Computed example of a mutant assay.
Amino acid sequence: MILRSEHGWAKALGVALLLAPHIWGAPHLDGPVDSDVPAYLAAEFTGASLGVHAALWGLTGFLVGFWWPRLAPADA
């Protein structure tokens, strides 16, 4: 909204949306939360999630880097 809009109100709204989480902050829990999930299972999930995301971003970067120059207009 800040970069693409010509209207001042849209730019102000964009700035307000960017600043809102820093002004009000995120909600916090009242106290510690007990979980029935074993720690090893949470660690396995975390590792698998990080691995999948790393592979996804790596593949995305490779495909964009490979196809971007090939699909660009010839006169650009």
Rank of each mutant, 00 (worst) to 15 (best):
M1T: 04
I2E: 05
L3M: 11
R4V: 15
E6H: 10
H7C: 04
G8E: 07
W9E: 11
A10D: 13
K11M: 15
K11W: 09
A12Y: 02
V15N: 07
A16N: 05
L17P: 02
L18H: 08
L19G: 10
L19H: 03
A20W: 07
I23T: 11
W24I: 14
W24L: 13
G25Q: 08
A26S: 13
P27H: 00
L29Y: 02
V37I: 15
P38L: 05
P38E: 08
A39C: 06
Y40H: 14
Y40F: 14
L41A: 15
L41M: 14
A43H: 02
A43P: 06
F45I: 04
F45K: 00
A48C: 00
S49Y: 08
G51C: 04
G51H: 02
H53K: 05
A54F: 04
W57C: 02
G58A: 01
G58K: 03
L59M: 13
L59Q: 04
G61P: 01
G61I: 01
F62D: 04
V64W: 06
F66R: 13
F66D: 05
W67E: 11
W68D: 12
W68P: 02
W68V: 12
R70T: 09
R70K: 15
R70E: 09
R70V: 08
L71Y: 11
L71W: 13
A72R: 15
P73K: 09
A74F: 10
A74R: 15
